[in-house]
Simulated assay, not measured.
Amino acid sequence: MIAVDILLGIAFFSQIGIGVQGNFFLIYLISLLFFMGQNLRPIDLIIIQLALANSLVLLSKGLLQGLATLGLKNLLDEISCKIVFYIHRVALGLSLSTTCLLSGFQAIIISPHQPKWLKLKARVPRYIFPSILICWVFHMLQNIVIIEKLKISSNNRNISGTIEYGHCSVNVTATVSVSLNAIMFTIPDAMCMTFICFASGYKIYLLYKHHKRVQQVHTTSFTPRVFPETRATQMILLLVSTFVTFYLLSSFLSAYMYSVTPSPWLAHSWALLTSCFPMISPFVLIHSDSQILRYYNAVHGRNSS
């Protein structure tokens, strides 16, 4: 085993360890407060959904890919291989759609206090749980076709049109047509990405307007500090730019892998890129959402008393 493979294995398992801990912290904290009878925000359900999807992405892909870099390949039979890969695809779709849902909810919450927006703000919390269920159903049905493409990978297989994923390979030469694949996967993903960028731009615009309105109040303070509007804008930009960057890089690399006979390096690079946002996002959410830290202090204070 060469040193590069060991480093790749360390990278995959580090992603899993860091990312799963961050996402499980959010799930544990919000779930514990719920069972303690605390009043939670509607957005907390979206955060749990995003943390769950990110954890599934890390565990279903990173663990097997890390084992593959260490030489432990073909550990799964055909049924197990299909199940794990299916979970990974569904979790990826849920991560995208939940980020889209989170962006839309935040945009509505900080929208102006006008009659039309007030009515929408009052109705939105009732639609969060049904929207999450729709996301689950949609991505589970969407990725059923992936199960039909999967077959157990072979160590000595190097065929054009077959993409190796360490434990599974996807035969893309005898699958659905390009147009059908675009309708099923590319168009929904592009719509979600467009909405995320639009909602984030709208939030930044609203925060900028608010900052301008209260700038006179801020300038009367003699202590230099970061304006809350500036900090919120920075966090929105950080979360969205992180998601969009890693998602686009992963998508471009995945499309390239479909057009050539990929080397193991391409497969490992794609897996690392795919797992970057699920690893980083919980820490961005914790840092940007002050209420999560208040949740932690509430739980910590109650356990200490």
Rank of each mutant, 00 (worst) to 15 (best):
F105D: 00
Q106S: 13
I109W: 06
I110S: 06
S111H: 14
S111V: 11
P112R: 04
Q114W: 14
Q114I: 13
Q114M: 10
Q114F: 14
P115E: 12
P115D: 12
P115K: 14
K116D: 12
K116F: 14
K116C: 11
K116S: 14
W117M: 14
W117R: 15
W117C: 13
L118C: 10
K119H: 02
L120S: 08
L120H: 07
L120E: 01
K121G: 07
K121W: 05
A122C: 06
A122R: 11
R123M: 07
R123K: 09
R123S: 09
V124F: 12
V124E: 11
V124W: 10
V124P: 08
R126H: 09
Y127V: 14
Y127Q: 15
I128R: 03
I128Y: 00
F129T: 09
F129Q: 04
F129N: 00
S131Q: 04
S131H: 03
S131G: 02
I132Y: 03
I132N: 05
I132S: 04
I132C: 01
L133A: 09
L133H: 04
L133N: 10
I134A: 11
I134V: 09
C135V: 07
C135G: 04
V137P: 00
V137F: 11
V137K: 03
F138W: 09
F138N: 02
F138M: 08
F138E: 01
H139N: 15
H139M: 14
H139F: 14
H139G: 13
M140Y: 07
L141W: 00
L141E: 04
Q142K: 02
Q142G: 03
N143F: 15
N143Y: 15
I146S: 11
I147P: 12
I147K: 13
I147L: 15
E148K: 10
K149H: 00
K149G: 02
L150F: 09
L150K: 04
K151W: 07
K151Y: 09
I152Y: 11
I152G: 02
S153A: 03
S153K: 01
S154I: 12
N155R: 08
N156M: 00
N156R: 06
R157W: 04
R157T: 04
R157D: 10
N158A: 05
N158D: 01
N158G: 01
N158T: 02
I159V: 13
I159W: 12
S160D: 03
S160V: 03
T162R: 05
T162G: 02
I163F: 07
I163D: 01
I163S: 03
E164T: 09
Y165Q: 07
Y165G: 12
G166S: 11
G166A: 10
G166N: 12
G166F: 08
H167G: 00
C168R: 01
C168H: 02
C168D: 03
S169D: 07
S169Q: 10
S169R: 05
V170W: 01
V170G: 04
V170E: 00
N171K: 03
N171T: 02
N171V: 05
N171E: 02
N171D: 11
V172C: 13
V172F: 15
T173W: 06
T173S: 11
T175W: 07
T175M: 06
V176K: 02
S177G: 07
V178M: 13
V178Y: 13
V178G: 02
S179V: 00
S179A: 06
L180H: 01
L180M: 05
